[in-house]
Design a protein around this nucleic acid. Sequence first.
DNA 1: TGGCGGTTTTGATCCATATCAAAGCTGCGT
DNA 2: ACGCAGCTTTGATATGGATCAAAACCGCCA
Lengths: 248, 248
Amino acid sequence: MAQHDLNIVHQQCGDCPIRHRAVCARCETDELQQLEEIKYYRSYQAGQTIIWSGDRMDFVASVVTGIATLTQTMEDGRRQMVGLLLPSDFVGRPGRDKAAYDVTATTDLVMCCFRKKPFEEMMGKTPHIAQRLLEMTLDELDAAREWMLLLGRKTAREKIASLLAIIARRDASLKLKTQKGALVFDLPLTREEMADYLGLTLETVSRQVSALKRDGVIELQGKRHVIIPNLDRLIEEAGDDSDGGFLI
Amino acid sequence: MAQHDLNIVHQQCGDCPIRHRAVCARCETDELQQLEEIKYYRSYQAGQTIIWSGDRMDFVASVVTGIATLTQTMEDGRRQMVGLLLPSDFVGRPGRDKAAYDVTATTDLVMCCFRKKPFEEMMGKTPHIAQRLLEMTLDELDAAREWMLLLGRKTAREKIASLLAIIARRDASLKLKTQKGALVFDLPLTREEMADYLGLTLETVSRQVSALKRDGVIELQGKRHVIIPNLDRLIEEAGDDSDGGFLI
DNA sequence: TGGCGGTTTTGATCCATATCAAAGCTGCGT
DNA sequence: ACGCAGCTTTGATATGGATCAAAACCGCCA
């Protein structure tokens, strides 16, 4: 049960069989106990907005199940997704009291929240937490920079391939099955959300997804169920040199 | 002298007259002393590459004077700038030993470096430093996300206006003169570097800079010396709703 | 079983920006 | 003062993706 909420303070321990960022019972310490005391859960329905940009935000949180997005919107309605939060990802900024982005649940969602004030106090006392949070934030920054390359320089086809590769990998690592066969997953985003992620229009997304399917890079069952027969081929299409979005 | 290197651990203190992130003699503590002992300076010439992506990087550093960039490059040569480092900005990742991006000096540059190992050890002992670093990293993440909106959704003209506004503001804040008159500065980037920042070609950058000049949004003396008669006008052109790049 | 809203695909056309090419400008070393 | 290299501008043309429009699909509720 008490699952992903713990990962915030998880310290990797050498011989622990459980992957990085997941729960590791052997790591429990005093701090975890303290965190337990200030945490609570919140659920949201698909499509529900969790916070609007500019709103007061008096908690930080970790996604337990489901998917949330961070988006920025210009006055004339142009939208750009700037964060995609999958289970175990962290939301919120110790040290700022206003949300900088709209946070939206794109699927049904459960978050594990910590009231910000006590969380910050704990951080001051326990270097572990600040360090773990720094590490996570640096990972996010790397992901954001990878994303900037995608937005600034990749073609529409490369963008789609990149997004599919990112989701496929994240999904595979969540499932813990690292078998090398075909990857299979359900797209958690609509075409429009994909477009907002990639800086494209939904029509272009649709066309390029069809093109990748036509060219045998991916297979589709229905609109959302994706099969990646050959991940390397997909990655090649993505034009990616990096080892890629190990983190969104 | 010992200037920007200290800002890393600077804790804002209420009645201190010196701006955030700059040196504050009154804040000196034991940690600062320890940092003093592991620091050293390095100088680079304009155009020199400091580190290549993938290289081993055994230090973290703070820019003292000059400007550096972080860029990513695809195999076919497409380039995207993903970080612009101005004086007082921090480079390097505690916890990773390889550089993820090319780091290049675009002007003559002085950095204040700390060997990574002892720096990390210090971080483990002094929560101040980890917390300050977290704060800085979160600011950088915000800046990266603002940048993503620019790359994904803004027009070429808006991109140029945004970049000029960002540089103008950073520059004004470095000069400490917050007077409301015209802003004046020298562009620290070539047209090509601006293009790599903005996800455009250098020709488009040139054309749009000319267009902003023609329309009276900016004035130019020579190619590089820029005068912003009216910052609000420029910001309007940038299509920006946020309070904008207080940090790159 | 049928209709209805939301999503997705497909088609036709347009336009902002890329691409290719050449000429102008600027500063620096001799 | 001259010439050269690296920037920058300007022009002509091409094109990838946006935009506008309509049809197809899909699940869901009455």
